[in-house]
Write a protein that binds this DNA or RNA. Sequence first.
DNA 1: CCCCTGACCTGAAATCGTTCTAAAGTGAGC
DNA 2: GCTCACTTTAGAACGATTTCAGGTCAGGGG
Lengths: 143, 143
Amino acid sequence: MTGTRPFKRALDRLQTAGFRPTRQRLGLARLLFEGEHRHVTAEQLHTEAMGADLRVSLATVYNTLNQFTAAGLLREVVVEAGKSYFDTNTSDHHHFFLEGTGRLEDIPGDDVVVQHLPPAPPGTRIARVDVIVRLSADQGEDR
Amino acid sequence: MTGTRPFKRALDRLQTAGFRPTRQRLGLARLLFEGEHRHVTAEQLHTEAMGADLRVSLATVYNTLNQFTAAGLLREVVVEAGKSYFDTNTSDHHHFFLEGTGRLEDIPGDDVVVQHLPPAPPGTRIARVDVIVRLSADQGEDR
DNA sequence: CCCCTGACCTGAAATCGTTCTAAAGTGAGC
DNA sequence: GCTCACTTTAGAACGATTTCAGGTCAGGGG
């Protein structure tokens, strides 16, 4: 039984992070943390919750995503003006962004390396380095 | 006289790109393309225009920035959810982003290199690679 | 030189994603 | 069961951006 007890997993994460495990938080945590890593917007997650018989308001989805992010359970990724994506993978990694569809995906492997980065300007320190590889549909290839 | 005729420079860019050189477009082009490369938001550029005796509405600033971007005169840089920056440097380069102040700066030099990038997924092609180095104020250093 | 026409600009209203607010609901300990 | 602090919620509010309907302007033809 490896990872076959998703309910418990989500609950553990909430409690470890010091959240009271309410019905809404638990439900969202299950959607987010069961299975593979994922990238969602608030709107998407809300729609998905509705479909999964989890009654939760959009405001709560926003609140929860922000709380999870502050607690380090999620990471916010900025790729499109006026829209926030949340990534369940909080480790160091980078992203492919499908311009047409708005899909966001982790770049597989940990081997992307940024070289020849100049030092941070005086008085500042590097908080994070984000690499976003923007992809377009490859038109005219197989037709 | 090298670059001492800014008016003509801005006008040339407009006409080359096929824009009718109206008072507003010319004024904005001068603010944008005279002098050093810069990073502006619509709001910033609008404020600056007001201060420079250029009467132009915020709607026009937005429209103009979008037109210039579509024509390849500007490049949009996404760093903060819910805010768009426009960069007058359209060549291949990357950015420092000062988290506290919202300042955006080109990373000097062309030598930042991203290595070990996996190939684009099937059916797609890499449109662009954006590297954003997020900086925080370096607290506790010199006090 | 003036007129005409399509391109352009404008303030106001509309839209989008997100946050705030005030009030009702809920869970954990007593 | 009762309480109280923490949660959730619907709806209003918000900031950034876009759209709209109408007036204005650039520039070629007469």
